Simulated scan of single mutants.
Amino acid sequence: SAIPLLRHHHHQAMDARRRSPKKRKFERVPDQDSPPGSGSAGVDLINALPDAVLCTIVSLLPTKDGARTQAIARRWRPLWRSAPLNLVADSTLSRQQRKRVVYVTKILAEHPGPALRLNLPYIRRRDYGKIDGWLRSQALTDLQELHLGYDSQDSPPPSLLSPSALRFAPTLRVATFTDCHFPDLSAQSLNFSHLQQLGLYGVTFSALSAHYLNFPRLKQLTMSVVTILEDALHNMLSGCLSLESLLLEDNVGFARLRISSLTLRSIGFSAPYTQGPSLFHELVIEDAPCLERLLPLSPDYGPTIVRVIRAPKLQVLGVLSKGISKLHIGTTVFQEMTAISLTTTMRTVKVLVIESFGPNLDAVIGFLKCFPCLERLYVLVSTHNCLSQLSTSA
C-alpha cells in the first residue's frame, strides 16, 4: 500500500539528514561578524551599517532593548557601551520600583557615558540617597535631556530637587521637573546656556531660587501648577531671551503678569479654579512685536482682566468669554463681551474664538468691528445648558 512506502521514504530522508555534516541553508544562522558583501545568499543590511550609525540606533531604543543588543553578536557587544546612554527608569524597565532602582545602579556602573537622556519619573523619598549618587555618576557627564519626577504621594510634598541635578545646566537641551521644590542658589547665577525646552509641573520656587536662573536660548516654557512670586516670575521670564512659546496653567503666587518680549510668538494661559488674592487675575501684554497667538485656555476661571497694549502681528485670539470681565485691545475696551468703546481696529487678527451665552449678536458685531479682517470666526453658543459651536469663514 501507499502508507508503508511513504514511511520508507520518510525514514530515508531522516537518515540522510542525520548523516549530513551541514545544516540546511535556512537553518543556518549567518555569521554576524562576516564583512558585508561576502557572497552570502542573504544581504544583512543592518550589519552592513557603520558602528557610528548602529550606536545612534541603540541610543534611540528603550533602555532595556538597547542593553539587550549586546546579545546579538560579537560585533554588537561593545556598541551599547559606546552609544550615548538613554536611561528611562519607568515601567518599561521594570514594573517593580525596587527592581528599577537595582537596574539603574547597575547600568550607571557599567556604562562609561556619555549620556543622552535620563528619565526618572517616580522618585520616592526612600531613594533620595541613591538619586543623588546617580546624578553624580561620571556616566551622566554631558547629559542633554533630563526628566525628574518626584512622587506626589510622598508626605510632606513637595520634595527638594536634588542639587546634583543642577550640575547639568551647561549641557542640557531639554528638561522637565515635576512635584518638587527648587533649591535656593545662594545668590549664584545659574546659566542654562543650551536649554531649549523646559517643563515645570507642580514645582515650587522660592524668591532666591528663581531670581538667579538664566535661560538665554530657551524657546519653549511650560509652567503648570507652579508656585512662584510675581517678581520672581518676571525675573525668570526676563532671562529667557529667545522664548517663542509660553504656556501658563493654573499657577499660583502672583496676581498680575506683565509680558514684554521681542521673540514670543505664542502665549497660552489660565488661572486656577479656586479664588484668592494671590491668584492670577490680570495679564498685560505690554510689547510683543512677534506675538501671533494669544490663547486664554479657561476664560471662565480667569484671569479676569486681559490687556493687549502692543502686539502688531497678532493673528489668533481666543477663547474669549464673560469670564474675562475686561478685555483691552489697544484703546478699545470690552466689558463682559460687550464693547464699551471701539477706537482700535486690529487688521492682523485672522482667527477669533468667542463664547456667547444665548443669542447675543451685539457682542459678535462688536468683535467684528474691532477685527475687520477676520478669516475665521468661531462662536461657542450655550443655550439651556447645551453648548454648540457655530463657525464661519470668509
Rank of each mutant, 00 (worst) to 15 (best):
F269W: 01
S209N: 12
T178V: 11
F182G: 00
T348C: 09
A169Q: 00
F357D: 15
L342G: 03
G330K: 06
T176V: 06
N214M: 05
A288Q: 01
L361S: 13
Q188A: 05
W76S: 05
Q188L: 03
S38I: 08
T343V: 09
S20Y: 12
P112Y: 11
F371H: 07
L295F: 06
K322I: 07
I309L: 13
L243D: 02
A169S: 01
S341I: 14
M14K: 09
I324P: 08
P112E: 08
S391K: 02
L317K: 05
S1N: 08
L143Q: 02
T171E: 10
Y128W: 02
L243W: 08
R310I: 04
V252M: 09
T178G: 06
L208R: 06
E230A: 15
S321F: 02
T344N: 07
L166E: 03
N214D: 10
L387V: 12
T348V: 06
H8G: 06
Q196C: 05
H234Y: 06
V174R: 15
K369A: 08
F26P: 07
L361A: 14
V226F: 00
L291H: 03
E249N: 12
D179A: 13
S40R: 09
T274R: 12
H194S: 13
L6A: 10
L264N: 12
F357C: 14
N119W: 12
I329E: 11
Y273M: 11
V316T: 11
S152F: 08
P163E: 03
P30N: 09
L374W: 09
A16D: 13
A169I: 00
T63E: 04
S206F: 06
G149W: 05
N47Y: 07
P277S: 14
A169Y: 00
T176Q: 15
L262F: 12
V174T: 15
E286Y: 10
G268F: 01
F168E: 00
P170F: 04
L241Q: 10
Q144K: 15
L247G: 04
P312K: 07
V319D: 02
H281N: 10
L283P: 01
H111Y: 04
G149N: 07
T344Q: 12
A165V: 00
V349Q: 04
R81M: 10
K313G: 06
L60C: 07
Q335K: 12
S38T: 06
R136C: 06
S206P: 05
P216Q: 04
I285P: 10
G323K: 03
L85A: 01
T105V: 00
L116C: 09
S193A: 15
R347A: 05
L246A: 11
